[in-house]
C-alpha cells in the first residue's frame, strides 16, 4: 500500500467522531463497531494503534484548580429559593422513654435466640464468577472470582467478623463493629462500604463511604475517610486520598480492572480468573511492568487493551490464549 494511503487511513481515523469517542471512553462507546473494524483491518493494526496513541495523547487535562464543592455552595446559596435555617427540635421526655424501651426490646431480642456451637459458613466465588452474598444482618459482600470469605453465622449477632482471601467489596449495615481479617492486616468499621484486596501478596483497602480503620499485621494503624486508600508497601502502610467522584474508586465492581505499574503476570492472572482461560507466553513477559486497564465484557477487547500498549500480539485457540511479541 502506498505511503500516502496509509497516512490518509490514519488521518481519517483520527478525525472520526465515533473513533474519538471510542478511544476517549476507554474503548466503551461504539465498541462493537470498532471491534469489527479492527477484525476487518487487522493488517493495518500498526496504523490503528498509532491513531489510538495519538488520540490518547491529545488529552489536554490540566491540574484542577477550582474547589468545585465550594464553588457550588456559593452558586447554590444564590440560586436555591428555599434554603431556610435548620429548625431546632426540642427533645421531648416521652420520646426518651420510647427510645429506652425500644433499646431494651432490642437487647432482649438479641440475647434470646442465641445457642452454642460453631456454624462456619464460607462464600466462595469460583473462576469467572463474581458473586454478591448477604450476611445475616443484611450487610453484603461482593467477591471477585477466586476470592472467599468465611464467618460464623451463629455468632454473627455478637460479633461481625469475617476472614478474607482475595478481593472483595463490603457494604456494612450500621451497628456494632464489623471486622475483616486477612493475612496482612485487619480492617474495622462501623457502617460503611469499602474494598479489600489481598491478591498476589498485596494489601490494599479503599474506603468508599463512612470511616474505616485499618490495622496492618506490622502493627501500624490508620483511619480512612471516603476516597481514602491504604496500601501496604513493604512493612509500611501508605495512605492517600483519591478525589471524590474519581472514576473507578472501586473500579473492579463496574467490571474495569485497573493496574498501576504492576508485573504483567498479575494482569494475566486476573485475565485467567475473569475468563477461565489459560494464557501462554514467554517467561520474560511476566516481569514486564504494566499500567492500564481492561474491561471484563469481551475477552477479545480485554486482550487488546492489555497487549497494544506493550506492543504484544495475542491469539485465542479455544480456552487457550497465546501472547507473543510483535
Amino acid at each position: 500500500m502506498a505511503h500516502e494511503d496509509l497516512h490518509k487511513f490514519q488521518q481519517d481515523l483520527i478525525q472520526d467522531s465515533s473513533f474519538i469517542a471510542w478511544v476517549k471512553s476507554e474503548f466503551d462507546i461504539d465498541n462493537d463497531r470498532w471491534s469489527v473494524f479492527i477484525d476487518e483491518h487487522i493488517e493495518k493494526m500498526d496504523e490503528i494503534n498509532n491513531a489510538i496513541r495519538f488520540v490518547v495523547a491529545l488529552d489536554f487535562h490540566d491540574e484542577n484548580k477550582i474547589d468545585t464543592k465550594a464553588l457550588w455552595s456559593k452558586i447554590e446559596s444564590e440560586t436555591k429559593p428555599d434554603i431556610k435555617s435548620a429548625k431546632i427540635v426540642k427533645f421531648k421526655p416521652w420520646k426518651m422513654v420510647a427510645a429506652i424501651a425500644s433499646i431494651a426490646v432490642a437487647i432482649l431480642l438479641i440475647f434470646k435466640p442465641l445457642s452454642h456451637g460453631d456454624y462456619l459458613k464460607t462464600y466462595k466465588a469460583s473462576i469467572t464468577q463474581r458473586i454478591k452474598e448477604p450476611f445475616p444482618d443484611g450487610s453484603a459482600v461482593t467477591l471477585n472470582p477466586g476470592s472467599e470469605v468465611t464467618f460464623n453465622s451463629k455468632k454473627w449477632e455478637q460479633e461481625r467478623r469475617v476472614s478474607l482471601k482475595g478481593l472483595a467489596f463490603f457494604e456494612v449495615r450500621k451497628g456494632a463493629s464489623f471486622v475483616v481479617e486477612t493475612d496482612k492486616g485487619k480492617i474495622t468499621v462501623l457502617g460503611t462500604s469499602f474494598s479489600v484486596d489481598t491478591r498476589n501478596q498485596h494489601f490494599e483497602v479503599i474506603c468508599k463511604t463512612g470511616k474505616v480503620s485499618v490495622l496492618s499485621s506490622f502493627g501500624q494503624e490508620t483511619i480512612l475517610e471516603p476516597g481514602g486508600v491504604a496500601t501496604l508497601i513493604g512493612e509500611h502502610l501508605h495512605t492517600q486520598t483519591r478525589p471524590e467522584g474519581a472514576i473507578g474508586l472501586v473500579s473492579w465492581l463496574d467490571g474495569t480492572f485497573t493496574f498501576n505499574d504492576v508485573d504483567y503476570g498479575e494482569v494475566i492472572e486476573e485475565i485467567e480468573n475473569q475468563y477461565g482461560v489459560k494464557v501462554n507466553m514467554e517467561a520474560s513477559l511476566y516481569t514486564l511492568k504494566y499500567t492500564g486497564f481492561f474491561k471484563n465484557n469481551h475477552l477479545n477487547d480485554a486482550l487488546f487493551s492489555i497487549t497494544w500498549p506493550l506492543k504484544l500480539k495475542y491469539s485465542i485457540k479455544g480456552t487457550e490464549v497465546f501472547i507473543v511479541k510483535e
Binding site: 490518547v56 495523547a57 489536554f60 487535562h61 511492568k289 500498549p309
Partner: peptide
C-alpha cells in the same frame, strides 16, 4: 495555551 500534562502513555 495548550499543554499536555497527563498523557497516559507508558512510563
Amino acid at each position: 495555551t495548550l499543554s499536555i500534562e497527563d498523557a497516559i502513555i507508558q512510563g
